[in-house]
């Protein structure tokens, strides 16, 4: 492999600065001791982290976001596994159409989804609740779950399943003992990616949240609309640190490249 020249490395350094600066600045500002946004020039303070304790709504929103993400990605995976097994390995009329439909939420702006779901739920007389939020997130994360499960199920050797059948396995046994364990990496990474997508979603959720079911990103967004103070910095900093931890674990487990770019040549 050829090495990068000094010019390329200088460019790279600037890009890294550009990418990391806004993330780092949030984490640094969170440690200020002053009452307004500023760099902690006179020593680090945990004041604004303690301040989160006085705002139980942030903790409640954090809990809401966790539950919402867990629930919607679990349902997405349960729906995506049979669909991926059929689309990835069987040939049937309408296969391309189904795949396009299932992937179409990726093409639809979340704002449009939010407006459409708000209209749908109010028209249908369901109102807006935690469950409508789960439904909305399900639509958004489904393509991610499907994509990752699809890549593993496409690579599955049909003969392995045939071998199980020839040895006497029933359909259900074959699925439980052979197919599912073999596509498990796709299922797990699909679930995790869905979870993160759901946890971070803000645009659609703004429309279909209620005061009782406000997710953390929505809570932050609405708070910022009124004022930007070090409290949002400390909440964001915690969010960032948690994400980075998950990210490093994911990278160790699956490789970030495979998760985001798709399976490469290696």
């Amino acid at each position: 492999m050829n090495r990068n020249g000094p010019l390329a490395l200088a460019f790279h350094a600037l890009v890294v600065l550009f990418v990391t600066a806004p993330i780092l600045v949030v984490c640094v500002v969170a440690f200020t001791s002053r009452g307004y946004l500023s760099l902690p020039t006179d020593g680090l303070s945990l004041r604004w982290f303690y301040a989160i304790g006085d705002r139980p709504e942030f903790l409640a929103s954090f809990r809401t976001s966790l539950w919402l993400a867990a629930l919607s990605s679990t349902i997405a995976v349960v729906l995506a596994v049979p669909a991926a097994l059929a689309i990835g390995r069987l040939k049937f009329a309408g296969r391309g159409l189904l795949l396009s439909l299932f992937q179409s939420p990726l093409m639809i702006p979340h704002l449009v989804l939010g407006i459409a779901l708000l209209r749908f739920f109010t028209e249908a007389g369901l109102g807006i609740s935690g469950w409508t939020l789960v439904a909305g997130h399900l639509v958004v994360v489904f393509p991610f779950a499907l994509r990752l499960i699809l890549t593993t199920s496409v690579g599955l050797d049909q003969q392995i399943e045939n071998a199980a059948v020839s040895l006497g396995a029933s359909r259900w046994t074959k699925f439980r003992r052979i197919t599912l364990p073999l596509i498990l990496p796709g299922v797990v990474s699909g679930w995790i990616l869905s979870f993160i997508q759901s946890f971070d979603e803000v645009t659609m959720s703004v429309f279909i949240s209620t005061p009782h079911t406000t997710t953390l990103p929505v809570r932050l967004f609405l708070y910022i609309q009124d004022n930007i103070d070090p409290l949002v910095a400390s909440v964001s900093a915690i969010l960032i640190v948690l994400t980075v931890i998950v990210m490093v674990v994911l990278d160790r487990l699956f490789g970030m490249e495979r998760l985001l770019v798709g399976p490469g040549r290696s």
Partner: peptide
């Protein structure tokens, strides 16, 4: 599943997530 035939596949089609004993015992 009920034919009771013994099959050996070109790719061997071993269950990669099971030990040799578990494969044979399946």
């Amino acid at each position: 599943a009920k034919r009771g035939l013994g099959l050996v596949f070109q790719s061997y089609a071993l269950f990669p997530h099971m030990t040799v004993a578990a494969n044979v015992g399946f």
